[in-house]
Design a protein around this nucleic acid. Sequence first.
DNA 1: AATTGATGGTTACATTTGCAACCATATCGT
DNA 2: ACGATATGGTTGCAAATGTAACCATCAATT
Lengths: 158, 158
Amino acid sequence: MTTDSFELDQFLPYRLNRAAEFVGLRFAAHYKAKYGLTRPEWRTLAALGSSGRMTSKAVGIHSSMHKTKVSRAVFALEQRRWLKRSQDDGDRRLEHLELTPAGQQAYRELIELARRYQAELEAELGGSGIEALSTGLAAIEQVIRRSGKGKLPEPDDL
Amino acid sequence: MTTDSFELDQFLPYRLNRAAEFVGLRFAAHYKAKYGLTRPEWRTLAALGSSGRMTSKAVGIHSSMHKTKVSRAVFALEQRRWLKRSQDDGDRRLEHLELTPAGQQAYRELIELARRYQAELEAELGGSGIEALSTGLAAIEQVIRRSGKGKLPEPDDL
DNA sequence: AATTGATGGTTACATTTGCAACCATATCGT
DNA sequence: ACGATATGGTTGCAAATGTAACCATCAATT
C-alpha cells in the first residue's frame, strides 16, 4: 500500500543518468574543444582505432550505437579524411572501414586524452569509489548482455 | 609513452553512458507507453509531486534540468491539466507550480511504476551489485556537488 | 528617479536525434 | 530459376535538444 514518499535523487535511473551526463559531458568538452568531434564520431574512431578494420555494423555493435548514428559519424570522419571505406569483394552490401594514417594519429592523441581523463576521474573518486562503481556497472552490463544484446527500445536491430 | 591499447568498454564515461541509457530507456518505455510522457515531463512531475509547490527554477535544480527543458515540460503538463501555475504576489517574475488533483493522481501511479521498476532492477542486479553501484554513484555525486553544483557545460546557469 | 545589472522564464533558430521507409544486394524455400 | 524475406547501409522527416537572444521585472547604485 506504498507510502507517498519518493525522492528522485534516490531513484537509480535518475542517478545513473545524472552521473553519466556529468562524466560524459566533461570528457566531451575536451575533445569537442580540441578536435570538434561529436560523441558518435569519437566512438567510431575509438572502435576502429582499437580493433582495426571492420564494417559499420560492427562499429555499431562495438560501441553501442544505432546504425544511423554510425552512418553519419562514418560520413563525417570520411570527410575529414580520417577513415576510408573499401568494398567487400564477396558481399557487395558491406563496406569495410579503416583509419587513415591521419585518423590513426588522431586516435592516438584522443586515447591519450581519454586515459588522462580516466586517471583524473579515478583521483577524484578515490580507489574505493572507482572499484564500487566498476563493480556496479559490471552488474548492469551483465543484465544488458542477458537481455539479448542491449536491444530494447530499438525496433530495428542494434 | 603509453602503449597502444585502449578498450572502449573499459572506459568509464562510455560504460556509464551505456548503463544509464539501458536502465533509463527501459524505464522510459513504461511511462511513455502508458502515459505518453517525455523524460523532462516525468522529472518535473516527480519533483512537484514529491516536494510540492515550487518554481520552475527550483524544479530545474531539483531534477538537474536546464531551464528550457523545464519550461517546455511545464507547458506540456499544463496543457494536460496536471499542473497549474500561480503568480507570486511579491515578485512578479516568478510563478509557483503545483500539481492539480489529476496531476497528483498521475504522480502516485507513476511513482508506483518507478518503485516497481527499481525493485525489478534490484532483483536483477543482486544486493551486492546494487550496493556497489550506489556507492559508486554516491562518489560521483560528491564530485558533482564539489564542482559547483554540476554546472559545467552550461554557459548559462543550471 | 534614472541607469545598470541581475534574475525568472520564454522563444527562435540551428543541430542532433530517432524512426520509418528505402535501395541494393544477398539468401532461402520451393 | 523465381519470388519471398533478410541484411548492410543511407536518407527524409518529425521530434527533441542546446544555445543564445530576448522580455519582463526586480535590486542596487548613483
